[in-house]
Nucleic acid binder design. Structure first.
Lengths: 229, 229, 229, 229
DNA sequence: TATGAATGAGGATTCATTCAT
DNA sequence: GATGAATGAATCCTCATTCAT
């Protein structure tokens, strides 16, 4: 029938207006919708139906862009983590002030760029699904975790080398520095509303991080060492 | 009662031998299986079928012990975290030494009781599923998170009151104290194998926590205050 | 433990007190419980668990008395229909008054003996399940429906023969006489509460039957015939 | 239609041909299958699997059309009884003849539209399941029973007002008028085959209803009143 | 004889995936 | 390329039935 119609038909003008940029624009809308859905509901909980609706496309269209739910998930993580990491690294390398001040900027920078953003949902997502998606976990580890860790460790080493910080294990310290990032990311997604009233300390992420900075600077200070040691 | 009756009786029909442990032992096998399944697959991903098979019982039997999946999960949390928490609280209350030592015991105690255990998968689980299951999130918040936070905050207050710690915000500090617990729990489940080689600092949880303790004690020390303030 | 207790114990007296009459008494309790459950919930909706609890026995015991749910159901219907039919038949046969009065007694008698009783649940039950239980339907038809119909038809015939009623088809008339019995039985079980307010006419079964009698007597009256015909 | 359109049109992309009937035709096949299954097996006993197979669709497709079993059932009732009811109401309102004739048409109309149809299984169904599904019972009461009763009562009131019927209670009379509907619906489903031979009077529903009409008209006639009263 | 813990088949429902248009 | 109707495998849960004690 449609074959017949097509046969008799002069070349119809297919409604392209929207199409030209489809290949680029649509997938990115889908990815945005998927990021939202996955961070809100988790991998299993997110329904392709919802993602399609949010992205303004049909469910079938999803399969034009991605082979399936898993691949879509991986794409979301990959895409979402074209991270500000590089920028951060450069900013840190060119900084000339004290290491304490650098530490402060680093931590508050994370807050402004990630922690206080929708992006903070990604760590939660990775924590939740890493075991189920070894290859994406691998990717996340290589592209995000390890680089971020390296930057932080370098920051610590800088302070130690300059004598500003006491001699600490850079790896362990780096982990301790970023630990609250994870707590904050994790709790703020899922417990947010419930916690508003009952654990207000956690809701104000920035103030919490200020306290964290204070603790770190005191904990890392080189001078008191003489007295204690 | 029936035992007494049985005592005077001719050829008794006893049917308790097996029941006595059924009510206790079998459910605990189910709980163990459920803990494993939930931490491996997440709440939604864990299949009751699997849990039953792992526990060596039939699917229907699960429903003899627990009204449903959610209650089973709650039972796992209760058994795994709520009970230990009470024990911890008592141990802390009766401690007579310095607050620094108390802090050390608290942190390392967590490691021994939870962090180094399968139980460490539960926080990860909650992070992942809290948004999807508000009931469970509420339960976890009320039964685990808030009590644990209260204990930690009390510990901080103890140190501040005795003059051993500088005057800090107890809530924020409590959160900073437990932040690495969450990081450790989160990363060790899902990134474990991948991290073995590349971030060894995190794999040795106990050593990491020792560094954490060191940082905290320095960060909380009262004396340097005089100089700074 | 209990094994040890048993070991030391002299021969216990087994609690027989209730047992001697079990074979008779218990099944009847089960039947009563089952009647209630089936009429309330229907065959599929009634749970053996409930029936056992109501009867004060264990679920397993049910299987000592009846081979299964179906057989229990059949037994309930059979048992419940050791009906007052025979008594009714005799009462009608020995009645000496007018057929109109006899009709009145018959209808109101049904109300007192069945319609206003738990027994009224059985017709509903049969209506619901007759298709699923052909053999019990057969039994119900033979033991209840047909005999009841015969009695009613005989009553009509008596009136026609005496000239008190106009010459009607006794079978059809008998059915019309008993039709409201079924309506009442059916509606009062399941719509009772909902109807209390909105269809009060049906709730007062006796008043409704009085109106029915009035209609029947007028509809069957022999005299007006001459004028109309 | 779409063929014609296609003929004159430049090669349109039509995708209605199939949709047009999908939304209407497919669900109606499902409704037919569901009516059959429900009346045969009861609400609880009907399996969605069967309904789907009978309708020639997959189980999942059922959920495209109806949110679940209960809604499917309600749709069956709506389609089968609610719509016809409206038609009946209109027909009665515009009738100009005698109330006796109107009564006759009403009763025989029920026979043609419902009683002699598969639809007659629905009342039986409701009787059976009302107690288990209060939602559905409520729905049936509101959408079918009460409206049908109101129509019947209005019909009686019409006759009383015109002086054609004696002054009777319209509610009770309405119930008596419809009582045989229920008997017939109930018995014909489940006892049908058994009754063929032994209670032929009931099998010929139309003849039975003729007798019912005769009884009603005599029972309601106004004239004889003078003599009796 | 009586028990009730254990079983597992069966059914409603969800949702990722496919495919005709 | 885009659609969304259709599919059916997968999963939670129920409950009649069994059986060791």
């Amino acid at each position: 029938m449609s074959a017949a119609a097509a046969a008799q038909a002069p070349p119809t003008i297919r409604r392209e207006p929207r199409w030209q940029r489809r290949k680029d624009a649509r997938p990115s809308e889908v990815l945005a919708a998927a990021l939202a859905a996955f961070t809100e509901k988790g991998f299993a909980g997110a329904r392709l139906d919802d993602i399609a609706r949010r992205a303004g496309v049909s469910k079938g269209t999803l399969y034009l862009y991605f082979p399936g739910k898993e691949e879509l998930f991986k794409a979301v993580v990959r895409e979402g983590l074209v991270s500000p990491l590089a920028a951060v690294r450069e900013a840190l390398d060119s900084f000339a002030g004290s290491s304490a001040e650098l530490l402060r900027r680093f931590i508050l920078g994370w807050w402004d760029l990630v922690g206080n953003t929708r992006l903070a949902g990604l760590p939660k997502l990775m924590i939740a699904e890493a075991a189920n998606f070894p290859d994406i976990a691998r990717f996340y580890l290589d592209e995000v975790l390890l680089p971020a860790h390296a930057i932080t460790a370098r920051l610590v080493a800088r302070g130690v080398d300059s004598g500003e910080f006491r001699p600490v294990d850079t790896d362990k310290t780096a982990i301790l520095i970023t630990a609250p990032f994870i707590s904050i990311s994790a709790w703020r997604h899922g417990f947010d509303h419930a916690m508003q009233q009952e654990m207000p300390a956690l809701t104000d992420g920035r103030a919490l991080l200020e306290a964290h900075i204070e603790m770190l600077i005191r904990g890392l200070a080189a001078e008191p060492m003489e007295k204690r040691a």
